[in-house]
Simulated scan of single mutants.
Amino acid sequence: MKKQMIKALIVDDERFSREELKHLLSTYHHIQIVGEADSGNSALVKSLQIKPDVVFLDVEMPNMNGIETAKAMKELKAPPLIVFATAYPSFAVDAFAYGAIDYLLKPFEEERMKETISRLEERLLPTKITEEEYAPNKLAVESEDGIIYIDPSTILFLARDERVTKIVGRDFSYETKAALKDFEVRLKEYQFFRIHKSYLVNLNQVKKLTPWFNGAYQLEMNDFRESLSVSRNYVKALREKLEI
Protein backbone atom coordinates (compact mmCIF):
# COMPACT_ATOMS: atom_id res chain seq x y z
CA MET A 1 0.00 0.00 0.00
CA LYS A 2 1.35 3.39 -0.99
CA LYS A 3 2.21 5.48 2.03
CA GLN A 4 0.66 8.87 2.65
CA MET A 5 2.88 11.93 2.19
CA ILE A 6 2.41 15.63 2.90
CA LYS A 7 4.08 17.83 0.27
CA ALA A 8 5.72 20.94 1.75
CA LEU A 9 7.08 24.13 0.16
CA ILE A 10 9.52 26.26 2.23
CA VAL A 11 9.52 30.01 1.60
CA ASP A 12 12.09 32.31 3.23
CA ASP A 13 14.48 34.90 1.80
CA GLU A 14 17.22 33.73 4.20
CA ARG A 15 18.95 30.51 3.15
CA PHE A 16 20.00 29.64 6.71
CA SER A 17 16.38 29.72 7.87
CA ARG A 18 15.34 27.48 4.99
CA GLU A 19 18.09 25.00 5.84
CA GLU A 20 17.11 24.97 9.51
CA LEU A 21 13.48 24.30 8.65
CA LYS A 22 14.45 21.57 6.16
CA HIS A 23 16.53 19.89 8.86
CA LEU A 24 13.65 19.89 11.34
CA LEU A 25 11.11 18.65 8.80
CA SER A 26 13.44 15.90 7.56
CA THR A 27 12.86 14.01 10.82
CA TYR A 28 9.20 13.53 9.83
CA HIS A 29 9.32 10.92 7.12
CA HIS A 30 5.78 11.54 5.89
CA ILE A 31 6.69 15.17 5.12
CA GLN A 32 8.12 15.51 1.60
CA ILE A 33 9.90 18.81 0.89
CA VAL A 34 9.02 19.40 -2.76
CA GLY A 35 10.55 22.86 -3.20
CA GLU A 36 12.01 26.07 -1.83
CA ALA A 37 11.46 29.74 -2.68
CA ASP A 38 13.21 32.92 -1.55
CA SER A 39 10.42 35.38 -2.35
CA GLY A 40 6.64 35.68 -2.45
CA ASN A 41 6.51 35.83 -6.24
CA SER A 42 8.64 32.70 -6.56
CA ALA A 43 6.44 30.95 -3.98
CA LEU A 44 3.31 31.63 -6.04
CA VAL A 45 4.92 30.27 -9.20
CA LYS A 46 6.13 27.13 -7.46
CA SER A 47 2.75 26.61 -5.79
CA LEU A 48 1.16 26.55 -9.22
CA GLN A 49 3.79 24.16 -10.55
CA ILE A 50 4.12 21.61 -7.75
CA LYS A 51 0.83 22.09 -5.84
CA PRO A 52 2.14 21.66 -2.27
CA ASP A 53 -0.18 20.60 0.53
CA VAL A 54 1.38 23.10 2.93
CA VAL A 55 3.58 26.18 2.63
CA PHE A 56 5.93 27.16 5.46
CA LEU A 57 6.01 30.92 4.91
CA ASP A 58 8.20 33.69 6.29
CA VAL A 59 6.56 37.07 6.95
CA GLU A 60 9.33 39.63 6.41
CA MET A 61 10.44 39.37 2.77
CA PRO A 62 11.24 42.08 0.20
CA ASN A 63 8.70 43.15 -2.47
CA MET A 64 5.87 40.77 -1.51
CA ASN A 65 5.80 39.90 2.19
CA GLY A 66 4.38 36.74 3.69
CA ILE A 67 0.96 38.19 4.51
CA GLU A 68 0.52 39.40 0.92
CA THR A 69 1.72 36.03 -0.38
CA ALA A 70 -0.77 34.15 1.82
CA LYS A 71 -3.57 36.40 0.58
CA ALA A 72 -2.63 35.63 -3.04
CA MET A 73 -2.38 31.90 -2.35
CA LYS A 74 -5.95 31.86 -1.03
CA GLU A 75 -7.06 32.74 -4.57
CA LEU A 76 -5.39 29.69 -6.13
CA LYS A 77 -7.60 26.90 -7.47
CA ALA A 78 -6.15 24.48 -4.91
CA PRO A 79 -4.82 26.71 -2.10
CA PRO A 80 -2.27 25.08 0.22
CA LEU A 81 -2.39 25.23 3.99
CA ILE A 82 -0.21 28.00 5.41
CA VAL A 83 2.18 27.74 8.34
CA PHE A 84 3.90 31.04 9.08
CA ALA A 85 7.50 30.64 10.23
CA THR A 86 8.90 33.98 11.33
CA ALA A 87 10.84 35.90 13.95
CA TYR A 88 8.04 38.47 14.37
CA PRO A 89 5.18 37.59 16.77
CA SER A 90 3.32 40.83 15.98
CA PHE A 91 1.95 39.50 12.67
CA ALA A 92 0.06 36.57 14.23
CA VAL A 93 -3.39 38.22 14.15
CA ASP A 94 -3.06 39.07 10.45
CA ALA A 95 -1.68 35.60 9.73
CA PHE A 96 -4.66 33.76 11.20
CA ALA A 97 -7.01 36.17 9.44
CA TYR A 98 -5.75 34.65 6.19
CA GLY A 99 -6.38 31.10 7.32
CA ALA A 100 -2.96 30.13 8.66
CA ILE A 101 -3.03 26.73 10.37
CA ASP A 102 -0.15 27.65 12.69
CA TYR A 103 2.40 30.36 13.52
CA LEU A 104 5.97 29.24 14.33
CA LEU A 105 8.49 31.61 15.85
CA LYS A 106 12.23 31.55 15.14
CA PRO A 107 14.40 30.00 16.45
CA PHE A 108 12.29 26.91 15.80
CA GLU A 109 11.73 24.47 18.66
CA GLU A 110 11.32 20.73 18.13
CA GLU A 111 8.40 20.39 20.56
CA ARG A 112 6.57 23.28 18.91
CA MET A 113 7.16 21.73 15.49
CA LYS A 114 5.56 18.47 16.69
CA GLU A 115 2.36 20.40 17.44
CA THR A 116 2.38 21.88 13.94
CA ILE A 117 2.90 18.48 12.30
CA SER A 118 0.03 17.03 14.35
CA ARG A 119 -2.27 19.78 13.05
CA LEU A 120 -1.19 19.06 9.50
CA GLU A 121 -1.83 15.34 9.98
CA GLU A 122 -5.33 16.00 11.23
CA ARG A 123 -6.13 18.18 8.21
CA LEU A 124 -4.33 16.30 5.44
CA LEU A 125 -4.18 12.62 6.35
CA PRO A 126 -7.29 10.40 6.55
CA THR A 127 -6.11 8.85 9.80
CA LYS A 128 -3.14 9.64 11.98
CA ILE A 129 -0.35 7.32 10.92
CA THR A 130 2.02 5.55 13.28
CA GLU A 131 5.79 5.77 13.39
CA GLU A 132 6.02 2.28 11.90
CA GLU A 133 3.76 3.17 8.95
CA TYR A 134 5.77 6.19 7.88
CA ALA A 135 9.21 4.70 8.53
CA PRO A 136 11.27 5.51 5.42
CA ASN A 137 11.81 2.90 2.75
CA LYS A 138 15.55 2.68 2.18
CA LEU A 139 17.28 1.92 -1.09
CA ALA A 140 19.68 -0.96 -0.46
CA VAL A 141 22.92 -0.58 -2.45
CA GLU A 142 25.59 -3.26 -2.53
CA SER A 143 29.10 -1.83 -2.62
CA GLU A 144 32.61 -3.06 -1.86
CA ASP A 145 32.16 -1.87 1.74
CA GLY A 146 28.92 -3.78 2.28
CA ILE A 147 25.23 -2.92 1.91
CA ILE A 148 24.47 0.81 2.18
CA TYR A 149 20.92 2.03 2.91
CA ILE A 150 19.98 5.36 1.33
CA ASP A 151 16.86 7.50 1.67
CA PRO A 152 15.74 7.97 -1.99
CA SER A 153 14.70 11.60 -1.38
CA THR A 154 18.34 12.51 -0.63
CA ILE A 155 19.61 11.24 -4.01
CA LEU A 156 20.21 13.86 -6.72
CA PHE A 157 20.93 11.50 -9.60
CA LEU A 158 22.42 8.16 -10.66
CA ALA A 159 25.01 7.89 -13.44
CA ARG A 160 26.28 4.86 -15.34
CA ASP A 161 30.00 4.95 -16.14
CA GLU A 162 31.21 1.84 -17.99
CA ARG A 163 30.39 -1.01 -15.54
CA VAL A 164 29.79 1.15 -12.49
CA THR A 165 26.68 3.03 -11.36
CA LYS A 166 27.35 6.13 -9.28
CA ILE A 167 24.69 7.27 -6.79
CA VAL A 168 25.16 10.97 -6.06
CA GLY A 169 23.62 13.09 -3.30
CA ARG A 170 24.39 16.56 -2.02
CA ASP A 171 27.00 15.26 0.42
CA PHE A 172 27.66 11.68 -0.66
CA SER A 173 28.61 9.52 -3.63
CA TYR A 174 28.53 5.72 -3.78
CA GLU A 175 29.48 3.21 -6.47
CA THR A 176 27.86 -0.13 -7.23
CA LYS A 177 27.94 -2.69 -10.04
CA ALA A 178 24.12 -2.87 -10.19
CA ALA A 179 22.69 -1.73 -13.54
CA LEU A 180 21.03 1.67 -13.95
CA LYS A 181 17.94 -0.06 -15.36
CA ASP A 182 17.50 -1.94 -12.07
CA PHE A 183 17.45 1.34 -10.14
CA GLU A 184 15.01 2.84 -12.64
CA VAL A 185 12.51 0.12 -11.73
CA ARG A 186 13.15 0.28 -7.98
CA LEU A 187 12.87 4.09 -7.83
CA LYS A 188 9.85 4.49 -10.08
CA GLU A 189 7.52 5.48 -7.19
CA TYR A 190 10.00 8.10 -5.95
CA GLN A 191 9.79 10.45 -8.98
CA PHE A 192 13.03 9.38 -10.66
CA PHE A 193 13.22 9.80 -14.43
CA ARG A 194 15.63 8.69 -17.17
CA ILE A 195 17.06 11.69 -19.08
CA HIS A 196 19.86 9.88 -20.92
CA LYS A 197 21.08 6.32 -21.36
CA SER A 198 23.59 7.12 -18.59
CA TYR A 199 21.51 9.29 -16.22
CA LEU A 200 18.55 8.80 -13.89
CA VAL A 201 17.52 11.94 -11.97
CA ASN A 202 15.36 12.82 -8.98
CA LEU A 203 12.70 15.15 -10.45
CA ASN A 204 12.21 16.80 -7.04
CA GLN A 205 15.84 17.98 -7.16
CA VAL A 206 15.78 19.51 -10.66
CA LYS A 207 16.73 23.19 -10.68
CA LYS A 208 17.02 24.33 -14.32
CA LEU A 209 16.67 23.04 -17.89
CA THR A 210 18.69 24.82 -20.60
CA PRO A 211 18.63 24.27 -24.40
CA TRP A 212 21.95 22.96 -25.71
CA PHE A 213 22.40 21.86 -29.32
CA ASN A 214 20.78 19.45 -31.81
CA GLY A 215 17.65 19.36 -29.67
CA ALA A 216 19.52 18.27 -26.53
CA TYR A 217 19.35 20.08 -23.16
CA GLN A 218 21.50 20.63 -20.09
CA LEU A 219 19.99 19.94 -16.68
CA GLU A 220 21.03 21.61 -13.42
CA MET A 221 20.36 19.89 -10.09
CA ASN A 222 20.04 21.45 -6.65
CA ASP A 223 23.34 21.65 -4.75
CA PHE A 224 25.39 20.24 -7.65
CA ARG A 225 27.69 22.42 -9.77
CA GLU A 226 28.00 20.33 -12.93
CA SER A 227 25.23 20.07 -15.54
CA LEU A 228 23.83 16.76 -16.80
CA SER A 229 23.08 16.00 -20.44
CA VAL A 230 19.48 15.38 -21.50
CA SER A 231 19.15 13.38 -24.73
CA ARG A 232 16.73 14.91 -27.20
CA ASN A 233 14.70 11.69 -27.16
CA TYR A 234 13.85 12.32 -23.51
CA VAL A 235 13.29 16.10 -23.60
CA LYS A 236 9.56 16.09 -24.38
CA ALA A 237 8.70 13.50 -21.74
CA LEU A 238 10.91 15.26 -19.17
CA ARG A 239 9.19 18.61 -19.72
CA GLU A 240 5.79 16.94 -19.37
CA LYS A 241 6.91 15.50 -16.03
CA LEU A 242 8.27 18.81 -14.74
CA GLU A 243 5.64 21.27 -15.94
CA ILE A 244 1.97 21.84 -15.19
Rank of each mutant, 00 (worst) to 15 (best):
G146F: 00
D145E: 02
S198G: 15
Y217Q: 12
V185P: 04
K241L: 04
E243W: 04
I150P: 07
I195Q: 11
E189Y: 07
P79W: 06
F157E: 06
G35M: 12
V185R: 13
F172T: 03
A92W: 02
L242Y: 02
M64N: 15
L156C: 03
T127G: 00
D102S: 06
V45C: 13
N204M: 14
L125K: 00
F157K: 01
I82F: 07
E75V: 11
E142Y: 02
F96V: 00
E14A: 13
T27E: 13
Q191Y: 10
K207E: 15
A159V: 01
Y190T: 04
K138H: 05
L21W: 02
F108R: 11
V201C: 11
F96W: 00
V59E: 15
E36F: 15
S173P: 05
L209E: 15
K114R: 07
V93R: 00
T127C: 00
S90Q: 10
E19Y: 07
D102H: 05
K46D: 15
K181G: 14
M1R: 05
T165L: 01
I31C: 05
Q205S: 11
I244R: 10
D182A: 09
A70K: 11
E162W: 06
D151C: 08
V55R: 06
K46V: 15
K208Y: 14
L48P: 15
A95M: 04
E142W: 02
K3M: 13
P136T: 01
L9F: 05
A87Q: 11
F108A: 10
K2C: 03
K208S: 14
F108N: 13
R15Y: 10
R194W: 08
E131C: 09
E115K: 12
V230R: 00
S173W: 03
K77G: 06
N204P: 14
N204L: 15
F213V: 12
K207T: 15
H29Q: 15
E14L: 12
S42E: 14
I147R: 01
R163A: 05
P62S: 14
G35D: 10
M221W: 06
S227L: 04
S26N: 12
F91L: 00
F84D: 08
K197N: 09
V201G: 07
S90W: 06
V45W: 14
A85R: 04
V11G: 06
R239H: 04
E132L: 08
L124P: 01
G99W: 05
Q191G: 10
